[in-house]
Design a protein around this nucleic acid. Structure first.
Length: 229
DNA sequence: GCGACAG
DNA sequence: ATCTTGTCGC
């Protein structure tokens, strides 16, 4: 039996710890520019019994891969809409602890505060790892928004009960838009800004695209992976 | 009661 | 998420 009630309550309590403004490093300044931006992705293997997390660290602004780590652990929870973070953050933390570099910012595949209780996986991971995070999801969990323009760069605010919880961005023409929300220690404006700075002709920002590619062993990434590292 | 519902 | 080839559209 899964105590969904208690998990939801935990989200409500921990969501108070989310910092919704820019608070990068100790040397934070208004014109702060990150040196390393990471991307995180979670997948499943062995019929879902194994949870696999991959984190790719890219140098900014060149966006070249400088490090990556993969962690595999036993799956602890089935997928339940709204409770995704409890299923994914253990593996994310495992991969995180293997990292030798300390990224300035992490983009996570999933929602940040664009969540019923304002505590999606990007926020959950950000708070526990105490690192600035941005939620980049490929589809909507909650909230409403006007139709997004077809041209690249078009955007619409994602609203929920009168509150803006994110931005829906057309990162690439003819592709479904991205649902961007702040995860932790990054303002919504900065979240969208950094995602756009990491777009290189593909729908997904490079950090997440790399985390995705590395985790799934796709030939191109595997090749560049060894050549670069 | 019915529909929605990140990955 | 994952199982998977070809195929429609720009």
């Amino acid at each position: 039996m899964i105590k969904t009630k208690a998990l939801r309550q935990e989200q409500i309590e921990k969501s108070r710890l989310v910092i919704r403004h820019d608070a990068f490093s100790a040397s934070f300044t208004p014109d702060f520019t990150p040196k390393f931006i990471a991307g995180a992705d979670v997948g499943f293997e062995e019929s879902g019994t194994v949870t696999r997390a991959a984190i790719a660290v890219l140098q900014y602004p060149s966006l070249e891969l400088v490090e990556y780590q993969i962690a595999r652990i036993d799956t602890v929870l089935p997928y339940i809409p709204g409770l995704l973070s409890f299923r994914e953050y253990p593996a994310l933390m495992a991969a995180w602890q293997k990292l030798s570099l300390r990224p300035d910012l992490v983009m996570v595949d999933g929602q940040g505060i664009a969540h019923p209780r304002r505590f999606g996986v990007a926020s959950h991971f950000g708070v526990l790892a105490d690192i600035p995070t941005i939620g980049v999801a490929k589809s909507r969990l909650c909230g409403e928004h006007a139709r997004v323009g077809e041209i690249q760069g078009s955007r619409q605010p994602l609203m929920d009960h009168g509150e803006q919880i994110g931005v829906v961005l057309r990162s690439k023409k003819r592709c479904n838009p991205l649902y961007i929300s702040l995860g932790h220690k990054v303002s919504i404006d900065s979240a969208v800004f950094w995602v756009e700075q990491c777009i290189r002709g593909y729908k997904l920002p490079e950090p997440i695209r790399w985390a995705d590619g590395i985790a799934s062993n796709r030939p191109f990434f595997k090749q560049t992976m060894q050549k670069n590292l």
